[in-house]
């Protein structure tokens, strides 16, 4: 209510406006299934512990707080371009499905690149980001939020937030779909849909980091086969549905969480294996 409270805000404003030389950065993502490119309508063999054949249904995820390391080793946040669609503040939605083939309930638009800027005059290598929607944005009302936070397809239970990652595949044993819906669980209070949670027991936010990453040459490869490697995607015969919706007691989640670098049950977190760096030969390949 007094000006003393407004000074820090003004100071921050001034600091941000000073010295604003930037360089554009584009981080490319590519969906793959082992050695093949991900595409709706294609089949992929040899997936999971039963070597099942899968067909995509959905493959989307949010990433937050994209940062790169400069030459002094300092972690610098990337300023994302605000586009009223895929990128909001420092959150972006990556969308590999295109609503064709078996992906009918997805969206025709895809998004495989994160666009923004970094301060100029530095060399950057190393990339980090988290697969999540940050807490204060996560538990917000779907309707009143700007894109990409207003997707009913990526909303979860009302106040438990968004699905950070939505992967769905039709498998030999589960032709209607085997899913991964990743999100925070154990959020309290959770009694009514009016009260916003103040904390979540299991945040479930995979962190991804690469020591060496050159945006001009490298892309982040997201491997569905690696995600499902330790999972029986055919599931129990006769048991309806299959997959993991982040229930901390669901054994289907164990292997997928481990691959994402998340702790699960008694198992401590191990390094993630779903995201890796690939260096295509030419920059034209980067654009694909």
């Amino acid at each position: 209510m007094t000006t003393t409270k407004s000074f820090p805000v003004l100071a921050l404003l001034l600091a941000m406006q000073a010295g604003a030389q930037t360089q554009p950065v584009a981080i490319h993502f590519k969906g793959v299934v082992a050695s093949e490119d991900f595409a709706c309508g294609h089949s992929y063999k040899g997936i999971g512990t039963t070597k099942s054949t899968i067909k995509p249904i959905d493959f989307r995820f949010y990433i937050h707080n994209v940062r790169m390391l400069d030459e002094t080793g300092k972690s610098v946040p990337m300023d994302l371009t605000q586009d009223d669609k895929w990128q909001l503040d420092n959150l972006a939605l990556i969308d590999f499905e295109d609503a064709t083939g078996g992906c009918g309930n997805g969206t025709p638009e895809t998004n495989t690149v994160v666009l923004g800027t970094l301060p100029a005059g530095h060399r950057y290598s190393g990339l980090t980001f988290t697969v999540r929607v940050p807490f204060e944005k996560n538990h917000t009302d779907l309707t009143t939020m700007p894109s990409p936070l207003n997707m009913t397809g990526l909303a979860w239970v009302w106040n438990a937030g968004r699905k950070f990652m939505r992967v769905e595949v039709a498998t030999t044993g589960k032709p209607r779909g085997y899913v991964l819906h990743l999100g925070s669980t154990g959020c309290t209070p959770n009694q009514t849909k009016i009260t916003v949670p103040t904390s979540c027991l299991n945040p479930n936010r995979p962190e991804v980091s690469f020591a060496a990453f050159d945006p001009q040459k490298d892309q982040v490869v997201v491997d569905l086969a690696a995600l499902l490697q330790g999972t029986d995607v055919d599931g129990e015969p006769g048991k309806p549905g299959g997959g993991c919706m982040s229930n901390p007691h669901d054994p289907d989640c164990a292997a997928m969480f481990a691959r994402l670098g998340l702790a699960f049950g008694d198992a401590a977190a191990t390094p993630q294996t779903v995201f890796r760096v690939k260096s295509p030969v030419t920059s034209a390949a980067l654009e694909q």
């Binding site: 009223d84 669609k85 969206t107 779907l142 700007p146 894109s147 990409p148 207003n150 009913t152």
Partner: peptide
Amino acid sequence: GGFNFTGTVDYLGKGITEV
């Protein structure tokens, strides 16, 4: 789900239509 209790929804400024 959503304000209209259906996943199929579009409005001004939605950004990405859902069907």
